[in-house]
Design a protein around this nucleic acid. Sequence first.
DNA 1: TTGTAGGCGTTATCAA
DNA 2: TTGATAACGCCTACAA
Lengths: 321, 321
Amino acid sequence: VSTATVSRTLSGRGPVSEATRARVLRAVQALQYLPSAAARSLRTQRTMTIGVLVPDLANPVFIPFLRGVQHVAHERGYAVLVVDGQRSLAVEQLALRRLRAQGVDAIVLAGPARDASLVAELRSGGIVVLDPDFGEARGSLLARLERAGTDAMCDALAALGHRRVAYVARERVSGALGQRRWHAMRDCWRGRGVTLERVIVGERRAPVEIGGLIDAVVRRPEPVTALICATHGLAPTLLRGLRAAAVDVPGDCSLVTYGDSEWAEAYRPALSVVAFDLYEVAVAVTADVIAHLDGGLPSQARALLRPARFVPRESTAAARA
Amino acid sequence: VSTATVSRTLSGRGPVSEATRARVLRAVQALQYLPSAAARSLRTQRTMTIGVLVPDLANPVFIPFLRGVQHVAHERGYAVLVVDGQRSLAVEQLALRRLRAQGVDAIVLAGPARDASLVAELRSGGIVVLDPDFGEARGSLLARLERAGTDAMCDALAALGHRRVAYVARERVSGALGQRRWHAMRDCWRGRGVTLERVIVGERRAPVEIGGLIDAVVRRPEPVTALICATHGLAPTLLRGLRAAAVDVPGDCSLVTYGDSEWAEAYRPALSVVAFDLYEVAVAVTADVIAHLDGGLPSQARALLRPARFVPRESTAAARA
DNA sequence: TTGTAGGCGTTATCAA
DNA sequence: TTGATAACGCCTACAA
C-alpha cells in the first residue's frame, strides 16, 4: 500500500501482484481516489491537453471542425482547450499565447496561421502546431480539396451557357483561404471563355444596398448571368439583397454558394452549393497531431480525404439568352 | 535573484524593491520565461480552468452560449475546456467526468443537468457547478425568460384570429427545457380559447413524410391555421415538408419558429420567430461562477437578462376564415 | 513483488 | 527587502 504500488497499479506499468492489485482498486473505489492532473503534468511534462484555434467561433463552418478535433482528442485521452480568434489577428495572437501559457501539448489550427512567426515561436517551445496544410508537398491541402468542387461547379455553369459570372465576397482579401479560393476561381474560368468579375459587399448589411450592387451587374448590357457567393455566412445577406432588387433566382440569374446547410437546401429555390465538411479534415489533422505527441506514425488520413463536390439544386439554371 | 523573488515580482504579492523588480522583468523578457501552469496548479490547488458542457455541439443555438462563456472566462484569466454531450446522457456523464479528471475549478452548464446525482458528486468534490437556473427562487430562469416571448407570440397569433394551432416538435419529450417549453405553450393558449395540438415529427427526414403529417392537420375540417416550430434546428426540415405538401405560408397556414437566425430572416416568406440569445445568459452565469471561485459577490447580471421576444415577420398572417 | 526517495516548478512561511 | 526551505501529488530509478 505504498504510493508507488498505487501508481504502478493504475498506470499498468511495472509489476503488481494480482492480490495487491485488487486491494488497490478496491481502495480507489472506496476512497473515490482521483489522480491529480496537475501533479501528473508537472512530473511527466505533458498536460494531455490539446488546443484548438477557431478563426471565428461565430462562423458555423468551423463547428464541424471543432467537433472533429474533440472526437479524436477525447478518444485518445486528450482534453480540448478551445480559443476563438474572433476574426482578428490581435485576438488570435492573444489566444495562441493563452494556449501556450496553459501548457497545451499541441495546437490544432483550422486554417493557415495568420502569424507565422508566433507559430514558429510556439513550435520552438516544444508545442506541436499543425494545420490541415502542414507538410503538404503540393500547395495547400484545403485548397486542393476545394478546387475539385470549384472545378465541378464551373463545368456545370459553363455547360448551362453562362459566359459572364460574378464572385460575391464580403472583402477583397479575407485570409489565405479566401485568397486561394478567389485565385482558384479565376484559374477555373480562364480558358473556359468565361468572364469573371468580383462584387465586394463590404460591411453593407441593408438589403437595398446589396440589392443595388447586384442590380448593377445583373441588369445591364452584357449582364452577369450567375452569382457565386463566396461563403455560406454571406448567403442570407445576399439572398435578401436579391429579393430587395427583385432579382428572380434562377430566372434572372443563377446562384451558387460555398458551404452547405439544411437552410440552403430548404430555401426556395433550393440553393446549389459547393459542399465541403471540415469534420473529417479535423479528424485527420488531430490524428496526426496525436501521432506526433505519442510518437506514432502519422496517419494517412489526410491523403484519403474526400474532395469538395458541387451539389446542383434549383438555384442554377440555363443562362438567359 | 532567487525563485522566491521572481515569484513575488510576477504575482505582485509580497514586497519587492523597484530595482530588483525591474531586473527580474528584464530577465524574464530575455529568457522568454513562462511560469509552468502545472506547477502553479499543483501548488495553489487551482487550475484556472473552467469547463463548459454543451448538450449538443452540433446544435447552433449553443454556440452563442459557448462564446459567452469564453468571453468572460478569458477576460478573467480562466481557460475554457469544452465538452460535448452529443445529445446523449451517457456521453454527457463521460464528458463531466473528463472535466473532473482534468481538474477544472468550475463547470458551466448550458441547461439543467441531466444527471443531478453526478453534479452533486462533482460539487461535493469542490467543483463549482452552475447552470442558468442555479439558485433561482421562482422556477427556471430560462423558462421564465422564454415565457415572455411565448406569451407575446400567442397574443399576436390570437389577435390574427387563430383558434387552432399545432406545436411541431422532433420528440414528445426533449429534455427539461423542451418539456417546459411545451407546458408554457399549453398554459399560454389555455384561457385564450385556442385549441393546441402537437405534431411529433420523430426521426422522419423525408419532406414527403413531414408533408404528410402537416397536410393531415392543415387540410381537414376545422384545420389548424398556425404552426409553431419547436426549435430552430427543426425549421429547415419543416419548411421542406411544407413545400412538399404544397402548403402556402402564410396563405394556407401561418408559421412561427423558436430561435432566430439570418436564414430565418432571409427565407421567403421571412419567418416570424421567438428570439432568444444564450450569449448574455452565458455571460451572466460565467460571471457568477467566477465570483464563486474568486470569492466575490455574485453578480446581478442574471436578474437583468432581457427576456425572449416575439419578432413578427411575413410568415404570420390572419387566419383563414 | 514491494517500498524508499528524489525531483518536476511553483508559492508560502520563516529567518536573515 | 530578500533568500533558503518546505510542501503540493505524482512518477520512477533503485534498493530491498
